[in-house]
């Protein structure tokens, strides 16, 4: 069983959602990003997504765009990604990497998979790579024992949910709202519906991302999904420092431990 399999087995046994926190590697600089990600794990995140700062983050809103720009200006290089992942796995933390596809393509898909696996990373989330174009990555992830986490969206047809869930391992990433990343006041009403539709095609755990920023929202999402993914809200806190990240993570960790029963369809 993969590291992600064990994780979800435990959170299911504890009848709670898993908390997944996203922060970019190299933001505000490489050393500080290691500390921020470690603090996220220490304060109650079950898994971290280590983001790769990229020059053209078309799926990201202003918060993550600004962090990526700052990381690149501060000198982030791809080699630092593996260092950051290694620093987390060395202390027993679970980490996957979230990246736009070109840095992986340019590095070499198999080489990237090999180096990520040897740094102790568990898998890769690929927001602009769908299974349709993922032949090389599917082969490399199999060869190096990594999970490949593809995304589904409210606009995905049943046929595409089936295709995507079938190619995914670890967990399915459900983007709850149509739009770019960014904290939102309300969880999109389409999120529960997307999770329900996706479950018809897979037994894999399903994580919901885009927009969560509070204990209440985390509890709400944990009521219908297996994992709550928090990105922009953590990145905003990262600008305030490690303690702010720790505090928000602890709040969210409480939320996923008190899942609200999902509203019955009327």
């Amino acid at each position: 069983m993969t590291g992600l399999g064990e994780l979800f087995e435990r959170t299911r046994a504890e009848r709670r959602g898993a908390l997944i926190g996203y922060l970019p590697a190299g933001y505000p600089d490489v050393a500080a990003s290691k500390e921020l990600l470690a603090a996220t794990l220490d304060a109650g995140a079950d898994l971290v997504e280590v983001g790769v700062p990229y020059s053209d983050p078309v799926m990201d809103g202003p918060t993550i765009q600004a962090a990526a720009d700052a990381a690149l200006k501060a000198g982030f290089r791809l080699k630092h990604l593996f260092e950051v992942v290694e620093s987390l796995s060395a202390r027993g933390g679970r980490a996957v990497v979230m990246t736009y596809w070109n840095p992986v393509y340019r590095y070499g898909v198999d080489r990237f998979a090999r180096d990520l696996a040897s740094a102790g990373g568990l898998g890769l989330i690929t927001p602009d790579l769908t299974p349709d174009e993922a032949g090389d990555w599917i082969a490399a992830s199999d060869a190096h024992g990594l999970d490949r986490i593809f995304l589904v969206a409210p606009s995905s047809s049943e046929e595409r949910l089936h295709l995507t869930a079938g190619a995914t391992t670890g967990f399915v990433y459900a983007t709850a709202v149509m739009g770019v990343t960014g904290a939102r006041d309300r969880v999109g009403s389409g999120a529960a519906e997307l999770v329900r539709r996706t479950r018809a095609h897979t037994d894999l755990p399903i994580g919901v991302g885009l927009g969560v920023r509070s204990r209440e929202q985390a509890a709400e999402v944990a009521g219908f999904a297996d994992a709550v993914i928090v990105g922009s809200a953590l990145v905003s806190r990262a600008t305030e420092g490690t303690e702010a990240v720790r505090a928000l993570t602890a709040e969210l960790a409480e939320g996923v431990r008190a899942p609200e029963p999902a509203a019955q369809p009327s």
């Binding site: 078309v58 799926m59 596809w101 070109n102 927001p127 602009d128 790579l129 769908t130 349709d132 174009e133 593809f150 995304l151 589904v152 969206a153 409210p154 606009s155 995905s156 047809s157 595409r160 995507t164 983007t175 149509m178």
Partner: peptide
Amino acid sequence: GGRFMPEALIGALD
């Protein structure tokens, strides 16, 4: 060529 795009836009491209 191909489609290196978010899943959210695949429906519109189809």
